[in-house]
Design a protein around this nucleic acid. Structure first.
Lengths: 262, 262
DNA sequence: ACCTGAACACCGTTCAAGT
DNA sequence: ACCTGAACACCGTTCAAGT
């Protein structure tokens, strides 16, 4: 139990791991990896392994080759080591990907204020979606791994503040923030994938013709509204965000919470 | 081009493929696979390969071992053949999974009517989510592959009808149906994964403590509303669905469409 | 404590050679 | 036209044996 916990801490934060590492290297009479000037001359081919270095390598591979190549083996090769070595710093592939996503989310929190709370909120969500649209596979992953990274938490806090500014009740804001982020994530996962793969695009046109050719006898509403169903563009996303935001600021106080008021 | 199209048809519908198969077997003087009584006695170990048979095998493996085992190799082994043989009927793994999902969606369309349009609509969405909650990996896949199966189309049609019954305008209904289905899919992907994996549950409690211990200086709103943020249960899903449905029936006519009215 | 090679147990997909 | 064996090019993760 205690051992397990120590290992967990290792994955979250490798400060003390590095400490141990340094201590070992000192014991062996090696130069410390934290003193670069000493190693400047006989610079070893491999920089020391650590969590930030691994994530940095992962980000590089992500940008150049896509998430499909962000594998333990690929990263290990880039760092000139074996895949087994990464498991000291990373619990598994999902942990790695979650870490990569939070790193990508860093600039989103710096979105500037817009004209009013509503525009600012929309801008924030759009910036969040832009990141995920660029890496739809990460959006998909974000849906199954509860995001708890610091940048995600900051985004949550900002959205909460803007909803309250817009007049939402405390409880509505608290529940709506998830709704907004879930929708943004899902929208990005969907549209990012459509944009990225020729396969999904082919499937998309198949869907379009299935809708446009829908048998009015079997699918009466789809057949009648087929053109509206397929119409889209930026106004559609805007309409959806407005629906969600208006819903959040107008929604009635959740019933359970009024029951359990202290 | 013509050859490609023929192959595409093969994947969608293997009727004529079977015809060719039968013709070949007749030419060789073999018994037809469509006359079971003839093969009753010297019943070959392997039934003939076809798309429905492959999907049936996939569903069996899905139920028994999870989507992670629904692989070309595993299905091929179950059907006592090599993985290469499946590529006659299935374009790739994603095509296979999409097919499996549409098969699972069949009973959703048979959801009975409830008290009013709103309850019926919620019931329909809940049934859809129940399927996806049982197989969260499929929910994740559904987000990146535009669903165009007949059962999905039927579900879309039913939702459209109920929204119109509730007073939504044509255009609002058409745009809102996507919003509702996307939310339902995303919610299922998220919560299904949390329920399924111990890993996600551990991550969940990590998130909970991150929220409850949030530094009020850095995350003021999260810290103040932490209890509401984590509170949930069935009323929360109900609240979210009501927000979306009310939004759909109240939403203003989308602006683009009023411009492009003929 | 970290690092590593090697192994285990898998994948999807393609292709040439069958029937 | 379908079916197949074999091959290509990969995966994640574990474990014992290093330093």
């Amino acid at each position: 139990m205690a051992a397990t916990k120590a290992r967990l801490v290792t994955w979250r934060d490798n400060e003390h791991v590095l400490d141990e590492h340094v201590r070992y290297r000192h014991k062996q009479g090696m130069t410390s990896p934290t003193t670069p000037r000493a190693s400047r001359r006989e610079r070893p081919a491999k920089p020391p392994l650590n969590r930030p270095g691994i994530i940095e390598a992962a980000l590089r591979i992500l940008r150049e080759e896509g998430l499909g190549k962000v594998t333990m083996r690929r990263i290990a090769a880039a760092l000139d080591t074996g895949p087994a070595s990464l498991y000291v710093y990373v619990r598994d592939t999902e942990d790695l990907h979650a870490q990569v996503l939070d790193a990508l989310l860093a600039p989103v929190g710096a979105t500037p204020r817009g004209q009013g709370w509503r525009d600012t909120l929309k801008g924030l969500l759009r910036r969040y979606m832009d990141v995920l649209l660029a890496y739809p596979e990460l959006a998909r992953m974000a849906m199954s791994t509860p995001a708890s990274g610091p940048h995600y938490l900051r985004l949550t806090d900002q959205i909460l503040g803007l909803l309250l500014e817009g007049g939402a009740s405390d409880h509505s804001a608290a529940w709506a923030v998830d709704l907004l982020l879930l929708y943004a994530t899902a929208h990005a996962a969907e549209h990012g994938a459509w944009k990225a793969s020729a396969r999904a695009q082919a499937e998309m046109t198949a869907l379009a013709s299935a809708v446009l050719d829908a048998d009015p006898g079997v699918y009466p509403h789809v057949a009648r509204l087929s053109k509206s169903l397929m119409a889209g563009g930026p106004p559609r996303l805007d309409w959806s965000l407005d629906l969600l935001i208006s819903g959040a600021v107008q929604a009635p106080e959740p019933v359970t919470l009024s029951k359990e008021r202290s």
